[in-house]
Lab assay of single mutants.
Amino acid sequence: QEEEKEIKRLAKKFNASEEEARRAWKKAGGDPETAEKILKKKG
């Protein structure tokens, strides 16, 4: 599933848990760029 792959990639890229990545993904409405910004800010 595309979403799961994206979440795993985000978690790995930002050294975050999949739970954090999933939360960022949901907050971003499934937009990878926005999710990255959220995780970057958090990191």
Rank of each mutant, 00 (worst) to 15 (best):
residue 1 Q to V: 12
residue 1 Q to G: 13
residue 1 Q to I: 13
residue 1 Q to N: 13
residue 1 Q to M: 14
residue 1 Q to L: 14
residue 1 Q to F: 14
residue 1 Q to A: 13
residue 1 Q to Y: 12
residue 3 E to L: 08
residue 3 E to D: 11
residue 3 E to H: 10
residue 3 E to P: 06
residue 3 E to R: 07
residue 4 E to M: 10
residue 4 E to V: 08
residue 4 E to S: 07
residue 4 E to D: 11
residue 4 E to I: 09
residue 4 E to A: 09
residue 5 K to I: 13
residue 5 K to F: 13
residue 5 K to D: 14
residue 5 K to Q: 12
residue 5 K to G: 08
residue 5 K to A: 13
residue 6 E to V: 09
residue 6 E to C: 10
residue 6 E to S: 08
residue 6 E to I: 12
residue 6 E to P: 02
residue 7 I to G: 00
residue 7 I to K: 01
residue 7 I to F: 03
residue 7 I to M: 05
residue 7 I to N: 01
residue 7 I to T: 02
residue 7 I to A: 02
residue 8 K to C: 10
residue 8 K to Q: 13
residue 8 K to A: 09
residue 8 K to W: 05
residue 8 K to R: 11
residue 9 R to H: 05
residue 9 R to P: 01
residue 9 R to T: 05
residue 9 R to S: 06
residue 10 L to F: 02
residue 10 L to Q: 01
residue 10 L to S: 00
residue 10 L to I: 07
residue 10 L to P: 01
residue 10 L to R: 00
residue 10 L to M: 04
residue 11 A to C: 13
residue 11 A to P: 00
residue 11 A to Q: 09
residue 11 A to H: 02
residue 11 A to E: 04
residue 12 K to F: 07
residue 12 K to V: 10
residue 12 K to R: 10
residue 12 K to H: 10
residue 12 K to T: 08
residue 12 K to G: 07
residue 12 K to Q: 12
residue 12 K to S: 09
residue 13 K to G: 02
residue 13 K to I: 08
residue 13 K to A: 07
residue 13 K to V: 06
residue 13 K to E: 08
residue 14 F to Y: 14
residue 14 F to W: 10
residue 14 F to P: 00
residue 14 F to M: 10
residue 14 F to D: 01
residue 14 F to Q: 02
residue 14 F to E: 02
residue 15 N to E: 06
residue 15 N to D: 08
residue 15 N to F: 08
residue 15 N to Q: 09
residue 15 N to T: 05
residue 15 N to W: 06
residue 15 N to M: 08
residue 16 A to P: 00
residue 16 A to R: 08
residue 16 A to T: 15
residue 16 A to K: 09
residue 16 A to H: 04
residue 16 A to Q: 07
residue 17 S to N: 05
residue 17 S to K: 04
residue 17 S to T: 13
residue 17 S to W: 02
residue 17 S to L: 04
residue 17 S to I: 03
residue 17 S to G: 05
residue 17 S to Q: 03
residue 18 E to F: 13
residue 18 E to M: 15
residue 18 E to A: 06
residue 18 E to V: 12
residue 18 E to I: 15
residue 18 E to Y: 15
residue 18 E to C: 10
residue 18 E to P: 06
residue 19 E to P: 04
residue 19 E to W: 07
residue 19 E to A: 10
residue 19 E to C: 09
residue 19 E to H: 06
residue 19 E to D: 11
residue 20 E to R: 04
residue 20 E to G: 02
residue 20 E to Q: 07
residue 21 A to V: 14
residue 21 A to Q: 00
residue 21 A to S: 04
residue 21 A to H: 00
residue 21 A to C: 11
residue 21 A to W: 02
residue 21 A to L: 02
residue 21 A to M: 03
residue 22 R to P: 00
residue 22 R to L: 09
residue 22 R to F: 05
residue 22 R to Q: 05
residue 22 R to N: 04
residue 22 R to S: 05
residue 22 R to W: 08
residue 23 R to T: 11
residue 23 R to W: 14
residue 23 R to L: 14
residue 23 R to P: 02
residue 23 R to D: 15
residue 24 A to F: 01
residue 24 A to E: 02
residue 24 A to Y: 02
residue 24 A to T: 02
residue 24 A to C: 03
residue 24 A to G: 00
residue 24 A to I: 04
residue 25 W to G: 03
residue 25 W to V: 08
residue 25 W to L: 15
residue 25 W to H: 08
residue 25 W to P: 02
residue 25 W to D: 03
residue 25 W to R: 03
residue 25 W to S: 03
residue 26 K to L: 14
residue 26 K to T: 12
residue 27 K to T: 12
residue 27 K to W: 11
residue 27 K to Q: 15
residue 27 K to R: 07
residue 27 K to E: 15
residue 27 K to S: 12
residue 27 K to F: 08
residue 28 A to D: 00
residue 28 A to Q: 00
residue 28 A to L: 00
residue 28 A to P: 00
residue 28 A to V: 01
residue 28 A to R: 00
residue 28 A to C: 04
residue 28 A to N: 01
residue 29 G to S: 07
residue 29 G to Y: 08
residue 29 G to W: 05
residue 29 G to N: 12
residue 29 G to E: 10
residue 30 G to Q: 05
residue 30 G to H: 04
residue 30 G to F: 04
residue 30 G to S: 04
residue 30 G to M: 04
residue 30 G to A: 06
residue 31 D to W: 03
residue 31 D to P: 00
residue 31 D to V: 08
residue 31 D to G: 01
residue 31 D to Y: 03
residue 31 D to T: 03
residue 31 D to N: 12
residue 32 P to Y: 12
residue 32 P to W: 14
residue 32 P to V: 15
residue 32 P to Q: 08
residue 32 P to K: 11
residue 32 P to D: 02
residue 32 P to R: 14
residue 33 E to F: 10
residue 33 E to S: 10
residue 33 E to C: 13
residue 33 E to M: 11
residue 33 E to Y: 11
residue 33 E to H: 09
residue 33 E to P: 07
residue 33 E to K: 12
residue 34 T to F: 12
residue 34 T to W: 12
residue 34 T to L: 15
residue 34 T to I: 15
residue 34 T to H: 08
residue 34 T to S: 08
residue 34 T to K: 15
residue 34 T to D: 06
residue 35 A to P: 00
residue 35 A to H: 00
residue 35 A to Y: 02
residue 35 A to D: 00
residue 35 A to F: 04
residue 35 A to S: 03
residue 35 A to W: 02
residue 36 E to N: 03
residue 36 E to S: 07
residue 36 E to C: 06
residue 36 E to P: 01
residue 36 E to L: 03
residue 37 K to R: 12
residue 37 K to W: 07
residue 37 K to A: 14
residue 38 I to V: 04
residue 38 I to T: 02
residue 38 I to A: 03
residue 38 I to M: 06
residue 38 I to N: 03
residue 38 I to E: 05
residue 38 I to Q: 02
residue 38 I to H: 03
residue 39 L to W: 01
residue 39 L to N: 00
residue 39 L to G: 00
residue 39 L to R: 01
residue 39 L to E: 01
residue 39 L to S: 00
residue 39 L to K: 00
residue 40 K to T: 11
residue 40 K to D: 10
residue 40 K to L: 12
residue 40 K to Y: 10
residue 40 K to A: 15
residue 40 K to N: 12
residue 41 K to A: 15
residue 41 K to C: 11
residue 41 K to Y: 11
residue 41 K to N: 14
residue 41 K to R: 13
residue 41 K to M: 15
residue 41 K to G: 13
residue 41 K to E: 15
residue 41 K to T: 14
residue 41 K to I: 12
residue 42 K to V: 12
residue 42 K to R: 13
residue 42 K to S: 14
residue 42 K to Q: 13
residue 42 K to I: 13
residue 42 K to F: 12
residue 43 G to K: 12
residue 43 G to E: 12
residue 43 G to D: 11
residue 43 G to S: 13
residue 43 G to P: 11
